[in-house]
């Protein structure tokens, strides 16, 4: 799962997958704007078959690859 998340994040920030570290803060580093954030959520829904409502997600829950992994695990039950 971490690998797949890193791939999605890398694609959205235009970086190499190997560089995406779990604690990289996508918003603080200026890598994601609000439109890219929505594309991230859509990418995660498609990749993991979960349903994520952007209006119900706090920004912190998708701010780092580690936070995203925790969110997906929670949604997958």
């Amino acid at each position: 799962m971490e690998q797949k998340i890193a791939e999605i994040v890398a694609e959205l920030c235009g970086a190499d997958v190997e560089e995406i570290e779990p604690e990289l803060n996508l918003f603080e580093e200026g890598l994601l704007d609000s439109f890219a954030a929505i594309q991230l959520v859509m990418g995660l829904e498609e990749a993991f078959g979960v349903s994520l409502d952007p209006a119900a997600l706090p920004r912190e829950s998708i701010a780092t690859p580690a936070a995203i992994a925790a969110l997906i695990r929670e949604k997958q039950g």
Binding site: C13, G14, A15, D16, E19, I20, L24, E29, G30, L31
Partner: peptide
């Protein structure tokens, strides 16, 4: 690395261009 460069250049670009 491409990520470090992206972070650096995007921060520099923010002085001249809106996000």
């Amino acid at each position: 690395t491409s990520l470090k460069r992206s972070i650096q250049l995007k921060k520099q670009a923010a002085a001249y261009l809106p996000a």
